[in-house]
């Protein structure tokens, strides 16, 4: 195990390959004239942002959130409202969406992060519903009729390219932050919380503070992405931005790819975005929930360390399912 900040040759190589792939992706608008391809990539990038940011609190710290969609929706609504009322461009106000989401996470984390993991998971699910009900009913959000935006028009291809690069930039920022956390003292602190919170506290890790920082960071990026997304689709209403399949999708992406790592959620997000795109063509939309559910259940049962964990030779499900401690004297 390397020390925080210290680099092995393999790590440098992997980081270089990752940076190279990201740079190549930036040139896609020049290379292709396909609007469809760019759209698919924009949505995939968005899900990479959502999954990687979810993983900061859900994977690295082990505090699973079932309400990640809340932060995305907060960003989407803030920029849409500022656009409608003040005419401010979402390209400029999207970071404010991130700040709002982070501020809300700070406030929510203040009490929910003192709880056990499963209580936290329920609390986030409940909070997502509170915000959804507010979005349906507060006058400022336009309720069920939503908010219309006028998407910018620089010609079809250039418009797509602008949104593409925006989402790409947010993705790069999210992935870089997650990667940096994973190698930092902060990241090791989060890992200690995930492995054994009581022990971490005993050796002097400031668990509540670290969790709060992780939660705030994990809320910021979806807020920014939501701000750009609302401008991109030019019309938001509670059903779209509070789509609860987003909350389950980010969880599946992280588990499927490899929870707790940076590359895992990226991998999972790309795979699931493609699966979702294929399903749009192949199956009726009602069946999508069933497929998502089946993927999540199978991942937990057969691939608890994710695809990445399996590739790196982590123990299979049987070994993971039997942790040390008194519960080993269980019935056979």
């Amino acid at each position: 195990m390397s020390q925080p900040g210290q680099q092995t040759r393999g790590q440098v190589m992997r980081a270089a390959v990752g940076a190279g792939v990201l740079l190549v992706l930036a040139t896609v608008p020049v290379l292709t004239s396909s609007i469809y391809l760019m759209h698919v990539l924009i949505v995939s990038f968005m899900f990479v942002v959502l999954a990687v940011s979810w993983n900061i609190i859900g994977g690295m710290a082990g505090y699973v959130s079932f309400g990640h969609v809340t932060f995305f929706a907060l960003g989407a609504y803030l920029t849409a409202i500022l656009y409608r009322d003040l005419g401010a461009s979402p390209f400029l106000t999207a970071p404010l969406g991130g700040i709002l989401a982070a501020a809300v996470a700070f406030f929510l984390g203040w009490f929910t992060l003192r709880l056990r993991e499963d209580y936290f998971a329920i609390a986030t699910l409940g909070l997502a519903f509170i915000f959804e009900v507010l979005a349906w009913n507060l006058p400022v959000t336009g309720g069920g009729s939503g908010i219309m935006l006028t998407a910018p028009n620089f010609g079809i291809h250039l418009t797509k390219a602008v949104f593409y690069l925006c989402m790409w930039a947010i993705m790069v920022a999210t992935v870089f932050t997650s990667w940096a956390i994973g190698r930092s003292r902060f990241g090791y602190g989060l890992a200690s919380i995930r492995e054994d919170e009581a022990a971490a506290e005993v050796v002097g890790v400031r668990t509540v503070r670290l969790k709060r920082v992780a939660f705030v960071l994990s809320a910021f990026f979806p807020g920014v992405a939501g701000g750009i997304f609302s401008y991109y689709i030019a019309y938001i209403e509670p059903g779209t931005v509070f789509d609860h399949s987003i909350s389950i999708n980010v969880v599946i992406m992280s588990i499927l790819g490899g929870i707790g790592t940076t590359l895992g959620p990226v991998l999972g997000a790309v795979i699931l975005s493609l699966v979702s795109e294929v399903m749009n063509v192949v199956v009726v939309s009602e069946a999508k929930l069933v497929v998502y559910g089946v993927i999540l259940v199978s991942a937990v049962l057969f691939l608890p360390q994710g695809i990445l964990g399996r590739l790196r030779g982590a123990p299979g499900p049987a070994a993971v399912a039997a942790p040390a401690g008194p519960s080993q004297v269980q019935e056979g």
Binding site: G62, D118, I255
Partner: peptide, 30 residues
């Protein structure tokens, strides 16, 4: 589903049942 993971961390069962809830919901939708 439940028996194979009964000794896993509570998080795993939570995720599994979350998936199961979606399967049931999707089934009812269909």
């Amino acid at each position: 589903f439940i028996r194979p993971i009964r000794n896993s961390p509570p998080l795993m069962s939570l995720l599994l049942l979350f998936g199961l809830a979606h399967i049931l919901e999707g089934g009812m939708l269909l």
